[in-house]
């Protein structure tokens, strides 16, 4: 156990936890917008997979990681529009239509990968961005200021999300539409316009989550996300529909995963107990967040399609 409590190992473990949290954070922040306006999108993982493939393929062909990220954004945005048409305009059952989007993303990303690439080929990864001076601080520097740029973007998105939801008219309308769409509608707020906007934001951030995952790993493989999109949806519930809550949930999940991996690496968790340890991130995150989330209520109109006069 003493091997674990060395500065180098602790810092490496924490940095690993931060990296593992990033795709979850992007995806769950996006889903928070949708859910705050009353729309549950279960298709996040499918959008992530297509964003991941789009980003991967763009980098494979051009070597430009920023173009890859842009393609992830565009793919996510387009699928956000599709999701919004289905759940807002057509008022489809949100659970079922989300699963449809997920299956579409799972199948289509693999099909495109098989047809356009075939055997996995490595791509250029995001460069590391060491923040001048701050990255030189012992321990803290390596932990917080020596990451790829998407890591900073993900954590910057948290205060931006908080500001939008809590301090802007748009955010107030999102909350109003999520709590009481009839009242919002009677005050002249377009419920469908707000929900379109939030679902598209959700899709875009899911696309970014996927692209950042693929480009940070430098590879694509069938079902690359391994259901991270579903974990992100759960984190929104357990993070009490608040950007800070989902950030803490993402970090907790990432950290527990990283700690378990490190304990396995050092044989503190022996291989024959590895499968029990693998459950720890999910169990600890759920327990911790359930305790916190009990004090908060879900948006009242969540999962309910809105139709004027019904």
């Amino acid at each position: 156990m003493s091997d674990f409590f060395t500065t180098a190992v602790l810092v490496a473990t924490a940095a690993s936890g931060v990296r593992l949290a990033v795709p979850l954070l992007f995806a769950s922040l996006g889903e928070t917008f949708g859910q705050r306006s009353g729309v549950l999108n279960l298709g996040v993982d499918g959008v992530m997979l297509l964003g991941a493939f789009g980003g991967y393929y763009a980098v494979l062909k051009t070597g430009n990681v920023w173009l890859g990220l842009l393609i992830g954004i565009v793919v996510g945005l387009l699928l956000g529009v599709v999701s919004a048409v289905i759940s807002v305009t057509l008022r489809a059952e949100q659970g079922i239509s989300g699963i449809g989007i997920y299956l579409f993303g799972l199948g289509m990303s693999d099909l495109l990968f098989q047809k356009l690439v075939g055997t996995p080929l490595p791509i250029t990864k995001f460069p590391k961005l060491n923040i001048p001076r701050l990255s030189d601080i012992p321990v803290i520097g390596e932990l917080l200021f020596q990451h790829s740029i998407v890591v900073y973007l993900a954590f910057l998105a948290v205060p931006v999300g908080m500001y939008i939801i809590n301090k802007t008219t748009f955010g107030m309308n999102i909350r109003a539409v999520g709590e009481n769409p009839e009242a919002a509608d009677s005050l002249g707020v377009s419920v469908s316009r707000i929900r379109y906007a939030t679902v598209i934001i959700g899709g875009t951030l899911a696309g970014v989550a996927g692209a950042s995952l693929a480009i940070d790993l430098g590879i694509f493989q069938q079902n690359l996300t391994n259901a991270q999109g579903f974990i992100a949806i759960a984190l929104v519930y357990f993070g009490a529909w608040r950007p800070v809550g989902v950030m803490l949930g993402s970090l907790l999940y990432g950290f527990v995963n990283a700690i378990v991996l490190q304990l396995k690496t050092l044989a503190i968790i022996p291989p024959d107990q590895s499968n029990f340890a693998a459950m720890a991130p999910a169990i600890i995150t759920i327990l911790a967040l359930v305790i916190v989330a009990r004090r908060f209520k879900a948006p009242a109109a969540l999962t309910k399609p809105y139709s004027r006069g019904e």
Binding site: L217, N223, N275, A278
Partner: peptide, 21 residues
């Protein structure tokens, strides 16, 4: 250092396991 990720498909965990090693 032996690290079983307990997944045949989790590329991200395999990556982090290698980083830990």
């Amino acid at each position: 250092l032996v690290n079983y990720t307990d997944s045949f498909s989790d590329v991200a965990l395999a990556s982090e396991a290698a980083q830990a090693q």
